[in-house]
Design a protein around this nucleic acid. Structure first.
Lengths: 198, 198
DNA sequence: CTGCAATGGAACAGTTGTGTTCCACTACGA
DNA sequence: TCGTAGTGGAACACAACTGTTCCATTGCAG
């Protein structure tokens, strides 16, 4: 099944992309706006997603898939927990407007289910290997992570002159500062790979 | 002027409070909802604020005043820039739902005008006295600040069992970690008052 | 060319929020 | 007791969005 024509797939994807873009900056935007942004008639949109709720559900699924893909790219198994988390941030940051969407409906349980557990494991690993401050509970770290990524994304959006790369650097720098234990206490066998690039 | 009866003032304030609460969790909520939350008839609400825009404007002004009050309580002149910033965070955190409101409309220029400049000065002071990482531009720090405070507030809201005090501690800890320069590099004539409290 | 898949537009009814008007009710001071 | 300030409720017209139906169109495959 699901062997719809190439045209249909393209139209569906265009609608989803537009929906993510518009819903990100205004969760209450009208279906007419989304259809227009997708360069598609409102009728066509309704043909693919009968009700608004159907579109939202599809967006949630699409978003979830992108999250999973990003997590895979981040190779969370490699290195310390802290390093893995920073790699994940880089990947997540590329999700762009989806960040706003996820962040604004953070209580929406849609995304969390799978990724929340995955991230929890990474953070716990970081706690054990000393790359993440043990005094910060994992849930709190998740909050910080998402809010910072959202902040970085909107920071970038408000400053067309600043480069994606520079903002990403600021994000990573600030985040790793937040999460790395302050004083090199006693426990870690702190090794070669320092936190900051360049 | 402005010597309206005590009743009127109380009603007006109840509406504003309810508006801040509801708009914080849903910027698109209806006037009927706000009126109900304020335990006031919709007619009465319209009597105080003819149009929705009028209510929003009043909320913005009220919010601005609370921000200014909080900034005054923080005694921004005292101590290093970093210390002053952390004190301000404590005060801002008490603003509660207003945080969500400000954060969600961050591009809304209403609040920024005065406070943005004030905070900019404090951060610059922190840059000079070495209590704030000079590699982080002031605008970026503002983004981080607001997003973290918002995250902390919603973190608290989602966990009725966690105490306001504990969350505030997490916030301060994470934030000061973010902003304090990492290695005592070489440049600063690092003075007596070290960055980390406790 | 014919036929079908995909689309866009127009029109419609239904819902929800808005802003307004009008009237009735309550409390309180003169 | 009366008058007034403050209020609440009902009703209305209006606007926007939604979901649906119907029909005309484009474009491509056979």
């Amino acid at each position: 099944m699901a062997v719809t024509s190439g045209t249909k797939n393209r139209t569906r994807q265009a609608i989803l992309d537009a929906a993510i873009d518009l819903l990100a900056e205004n969760p209450g935007c009208s279906l007419g706006d989304i259809a227009a942004a997708a360069q598609v008639g409102r009728t066509t949109l309704h043909r693919y997603f009968a009700e608004r709720a159907d579109l939202l559900a599809a967006v949630a699924i699409e978003g979830g898939q992108r999250l999973v893909r990003a997590a895979r790219l981040a190779e969370l198994d490699r290195g310390t927990g802290g390093e893995a988390l920073m790699r994940l941030c880089r990947e997540y940051f590329d999700l762009g407007p989806l960040l706003s969407l996820i962040f604004s409906e953070q209580g929406g349980e849609c995304w969390e289910s799978q990724d929340e557990r995955l991230l929890g494991d990474v953070i716990e690993r970081g706690h054990r290997d000393g790359s993440i401050d043990g005094g910060l509970p994992s849930e709190w770290i998740l909050s910080v992570l998402w809010s910072q990524m959202y902040a970085a994304w909107s920071y970038l959006g408000e400053r067309p002159d600043s480069s994606r790369h520079d903002v990403l650097d600021l994000l990573i720098r600030t985040l790793s500062n937040s999460l790395t234990p302050r004083q090199p206490a006693a426990a870690q066998p702190v090794r070669n790979k320092g936190g900051q690039s360049q």
